[in-house]
């Protein structure tokens, strides 16, 4: 385990660096000068790293919270709730700056996460109920965003659709720097709760028997996770499946203790989204594919694969 942990950190840093260099070097313009790189590509690399970190850490946390490896902000609809909050905030006058929009995005994420929490406590709280509830919340959030955008400005629809699929092109250096700082702080706050997260893997009763105050822990973690999702969504829209893919592979390699899972998810999330963003820019030059499409192309089949494997395992 020790060796695999070191390997995971080493390769995580390596892939991240390669992703950064790649994303700085290549873009929709073939030979860019230094000012272009600093003004456009650098903020974008920072934003991608921050978002990747936030999404992967929130995915790992949600999986433990709901004791289900298929959970992540996107599949549970929390991203959609956050997106609706962001759009609402933007349309009532808080501009595309950090602060205003992030706050409404946070409220959106928190409300949707709260509804999910209530669903998980109601009835049997089974994985299926939870995931179906999440999918429906996702539809609801996305539709609300679309309605709002259409009402606000018909020409804004395309921009909204792009943003819904994940769009990092709005990155500015100030915003991106603040965002990565906040994502780091929130991730560390979650990391400090590693032992409680470990206990939650044994289910609600299991965690209670181990001496964890499950109700209070869940509330705190939902608050922290919603903040992370809000940061990611207000930074670059809805990017799915990073929160699913990254923790899944981290757990397979180093086991499920969150002492390792959280920092490695942060690292690999940052690395993964940097690479995915690089791919999204060069794959169809001079056009850009939304980065959310790239992650979904890898993530959706993976989701199905994990789901089928689980079905077999639980028979």
């Amino acid at each position: 385990m020790q060796a695999s942990r070191k390997r995971a950190y080493f390769w995580g840093v390596f892939v991240w660096l390669v992703g950064i260099v790649f994303a700085l070097k290549f873009g929709s313009v073939a030979d860019a000068d230094t000012s272009l790189i600093l003004q456009l590509r650098l903020p974008r690399v920072i934003l991608a790293s921050a978002m990747g970190m936030a999404l992967a850490v929130s995915g790992a946390t949600l999986q433990a919270l709901f004791t289900n490896p298929l959970c992540e902000p996107y599949t549970l609809g929390i991203s959609s709730g956050s997106a609706f909050g962001a759009v609402l905030g933007a349309s009532v006058g808080v501009h595309w700056v950090f602060g205003g929009v992030t706050t409404t995005a946070f409220l959106g994420a928190l409300i949707f996460a709260g509804i999910l929490h209530a669903i998980s406590l109601k009835r049997d709280g089974s994985a299926l109920t939870l995931l179906l509830g999440g999918v429906m919340l996702g539809f609801l959030g996305s539709s609300l965003v679309a309605v709002w955008m259409a009402l606000a400005d018909p020409s804004g629809i395309q921009g909204a659709l792009y943003w819904l699929l994940g769009d990092l092109s709005r990155a500015r250096i100030e915003g991106a720097t603040v965002l990565i700082g906040l994502a780091l702080i929130l991730s560390i706050l979650i990391w400090r709760r590693s032992r409680e997260l470990d206990a939650l893997l044994m289910g609600e009763e299991g965690a209670q028997a181990l001496g964890v105050d499950v109700g209070a822990t869940r509330r705190k973690l939902i608050f922290l996770t919603s903040s992370l999702v809000a940061l990611a969504v207000s930074g670059g829209g809805m990017v799915g499946f990073i929160g699913l893919i990254v923790p899944h592979f981290v757990r397979r390699n180093v086991g499920s203790l969150h002492r390792n899972v959280i920092p490695l998810s942060a690292l690999w999330g940052a690395a993964g989204l940097c690479v995915a963003d690089g791919v999204s820019r060069v794959a169809a030059r001079p056009y850009e594919i939304p980065v959310g499409v790239v992650t979904a192309l890898i993530g959706a089949p993976l989701f199905l694969w994990i789901m089928l494997k689980r079905e077999r395992g639980t028979e």
Partner: peptide, 26 residues
């Protein structure tokens, strides 16, 4: 548990109750 975990790690979970603040166990 649905999550990959060694038997050792599973037993280690029993130590969580040694402190009010799990972070203090590090």
């Amino acid at each position: 548990s649905e999550f990959p975990m060694t038997a050792f790690e599973a037993v280690l979970l029993g130590r969580i109750c040694q402190s009010a603040h799990a972070a203090a166990l590090w």
